[in-house]
């Protein structure tokens, strides 16, 4: 099993567990993460000894069947849930021991999150949903508004600013959620099945937007069970039963024209 992932610092980490420093180019670095969900009678090992490194500017997808622990892993990395053991560095800072409040402060600037069910604040307008984290991060209402307007123009949401989430289509909601996640220009964008509740056209739109922000240097970590979505990333990590089963960089598309043609050859 290939547990070490692409980094080779594993040996050093075991030798001096507390003095190890994350590589400078790593946006996210996790070592030996473990999370067990305790049910009434059984304990489920959702994440087992996962090592993970995401460099700045990378677009990484975590793929696996449902129940493989993908979402749990993402929650651990975003501070929404705490690991039972293991260490996490975010943007060079050790974060696994942070209190909930410190995590909240960190998320404002460093981590944007997009969810499968959009999770917009139901009683706020699309505009308020996006401006809220900006205000939280200390922007003035005017700055927040300007920034939100930029994002809405780019995401084709101009005429939706005053609508409540209930009045928006799924695709629109997810674009608003994307705007909200990006409004503070976070170092890391986490996406948990962002297309899981969208039809194929909206899925394509969201993927295109992710690709666009990635092209501008946004670091993205995406969780999905959908291979089409995963294939839009540079690197796909296969999670199976809480463990990393494979970690592979995808080729540039030009590397496989014949194969594609082969797949498409119509019989007839």
């Amino acid at each position: 099993m290939n547990r070490s992932g692409p980094d080779t610092a594993g040996a050093a980490a075991t030798a001096h567990p507390d003095h190890v420093l994350p590589p400078a180019e790593a946006m996210l670095w996790a070592r030996d993460l473990v999370k067990v969900h305790h049910g009434a009678e059984t304990a489920t090992h959702a994440v087992r000894h996962v090592d993970l490194r995401v460099d700045r500017g990378e677009f990484v997808a975590i793929m696996g069947p449902s129940g493989a622990g993908k979402s749990t892993l993402l929650h651990l990395l975003g501070g929404l849930d705490r690991p039972d053991s293991g260490r996490i560095w975010l943007d060079g800072q050790r974060v696994d021991g942070l209190t909930e409040a410190r995590w909240s402060l960190l998320r404002r600037r460093t981590v944007g999150i997009v969810f499968q069910f959009f999770n917009l604040v139901t009683n706020m307008t699309a505009a308020d949903n996006v401006e809220l984290p900006a205000l939280l991060a200390g922007m003035s209402p005017k700055q927040a508004r300007t920034r939100r307007e930029e994002l809405f123009a780019e995401l084709d949401l101009d005429d939706r600013a005053g609508s409540t989430p209930a009045a928006l289509s799924g695709g629109e909601q997810q674009r608003v959620a994307l705007a909200r996640a990006l409004v503070n220009e976070p170092g890391l964008l986490l996406a948990d099945e962002p297309t899981g509740n969208l039809d194929s056209r909206n899925t394509r739109d969201v993927l295109r937007l992710l690709a666009r922000y990635h092209a501008r240097g946004q670091t993205i970590l995406l969780v999905t069970h959908d291979a089409r979505v995963a294939s839009s990333a540079d690197r796909v990590i296969s999670l199976y039963d809480g463990e990393i089963a494979d970690d592979s960089a995808l080729h540039a598309p030009s590397a496989s024209p014949t194969t594609v043609a082969d797949v498409l050859r119509l019989k007839g």
């Binding site: 929404l80 909240s104 917009l120 604040v121 984290p133 939280l136």
Partner: peptide, 9 residues
């Protein structure tokens, strides 16, 4: 949701 976008407890 508020917590995920950075509200402290």
């Amino acid at each position: 949701v508020l917590k995920t976008i950075g509200f402290t407890p």
